[in-house]
Design a protein around this nucleic acid. Structure first.
Length: 361
DNA sequence: CAACCGTGGCA
DNA sequence: TTGCCAAGGTT
């Protein structure tokens, strides 16, 4: 227990968080420099369900290529997705791109400063809108991300899983009640910093916490038990066949995936339900009766199912008929150019495994 | 309203 | 190695 904590005990919850943030919080994250609504927006979207350390290099590359919202709006969706490849949740990138175009059209390329206007943009919900406005302009709006939920679940000893709708409502009410009239930026940033640095999921540093003095979980000895884990369910195991089709120029066939569903809008190996469907496509789409060579399967786990990727390789001979491919959604891609395409992480892993000498990405 | 949407860090 | 889950939003 340090002296700051003792002194601060007389101050209200928000005041203690603000004081702590100013002394011990984070002030040098990339999106805290040259702070504006566009930069903070991009960071907030990238940080959704994604850790800070993972986001930083993506953010730097993204901002170097798309420094202003107009640059993003003017870019092709392929290029935007390529800058997102590897981050996951690709609807975030598609929504970000669509919203950037809206900002250019409807707001003269200036990110609006009203929460209502931000909420009308795809991909921005209540917490993200509040984060953008409070962290840039100091607007007093509460946020509720994973960090804040954990801090509140412990400080108020909320036992129910924070993902339950009922609990979310309760947490929003608490967030509103505790929102101070001033210092919104330091307060909201402080709650997030507290959650990530002190009120951590495991091994929380309660002796460094400015609000430990009236923390209910600490009082009840429940800190390690809260927040309650998500009720677990068994992930369904699925499998899919992937075609590695090479032409005589050593180019690989890629297909653009539909925008809905997993890996929406990304370029990928042609995917089929199973080997039979793959051979069917080889026969009818690609006029080839040769037997594709099965390669070792690759296991991948998503948030809601497990997928066994079953790759099949086929090299077309010099005499093979020139294939007619759908220009919009299919392409022959030289290995050297694969890095320019936003390939899903497990596909990239698969290609690296099979063609290690190429050293992709 | 619960399912869906990716990937990597970490214990 | 395995499982949990992170600066959530959309449908």
């Amino acid at each position: 227990m340090n002296s700051d904590t003792q002194l601060d005990f007389a101050v209200d919850f928000a005041g203690r968080v603000v004081n702590w943030q100013q002394q011990h919080g984070r002030h040098d994250l990339p999106w805290q420099k040259n702070r504006d609504r566009y930069r903070v927006w991009v960071s907030e979207i990238m940080l959704q369900q994604t850790q800070v350390g993972t986001v930083i290099p993506y953010f730097e590359r993204f901002m170097a290529r798309f420094p202003r919202v107009a640059d993003l709006a003017a870019a092709s969706s392929d290029e935007v997705l390529a800058h997102w490849a590897g981050l996951g949740y690709y609807a975030r990138a598609r929504n970000l791109h669509k919203a950037a175009k809206q900002v250019v059209q409807e707001w003269a390329a200036e990110m609006p400063a009203e929460q209502e206007a931000l909420l009308a943009l795809p991909g921005i919900g209540r917490s993200t809108a509040a984060a953008i406005l409070s962290l840039t302009d100091g607007v007093c709006l509460p946020i509720l991300d994973g960090n804040v939920k954990r801090v509140f679940a412990r400080h108020a000893a909320i036992a129910e899983w924070t993902g339950a709708l009922k609990t979310q409502k309760q947490l929003w009410a608490l967030a509103e009640a505790r929102m101070p009239a001033d210092d919104a930026r330091a307060y909201n940033q402080g709650l997030m910093d507290l959650g990530s640095q002190v009120c951590r999921r495991s091994k929380p540093l309660c002796e460094q916490c400015p609000v430990a003095g009236d923390c209910k979980a600490r009082e009840l000895g429940l800190t390690a038990q809260l927040p309650s884990p998500k009720p677990k369910k068994v992930l369904p195991q699925k499998s899919a066949a992937f075609l590695l089709l090479l032409n005589s120029d050593q180019e690989l066939l890629l297909q653009r995936r539909p925008s809905a569903g997993i890996w929406g809008g990304l370029w990928c190996l042609p995917q089929y339900d199973d080997k039979a469907e793959l051979k069917n496509a080889l026969r009818h789409q690609y006029q080839n009766l040769a037997e594709p060579q099965p390669l070792a399967p690759l296991q991948h786990v998503f948030s809601h199912y497990k997928l066994s990727l079953e790759p099949y390789q086929l090299s077309l001979g010099r005499n093979s008929k020139m294939l007619t491919i759908a220009e919009q959604n299919e392409r022959w891609v030289p290995f050297a150019a694969l890095a320019d395409y936003g390939l899903p992480a497990p596909i990239l892993k698969l290609l690296n495994r099979e063609f290690a000498a190429l050293d992709l990405a």
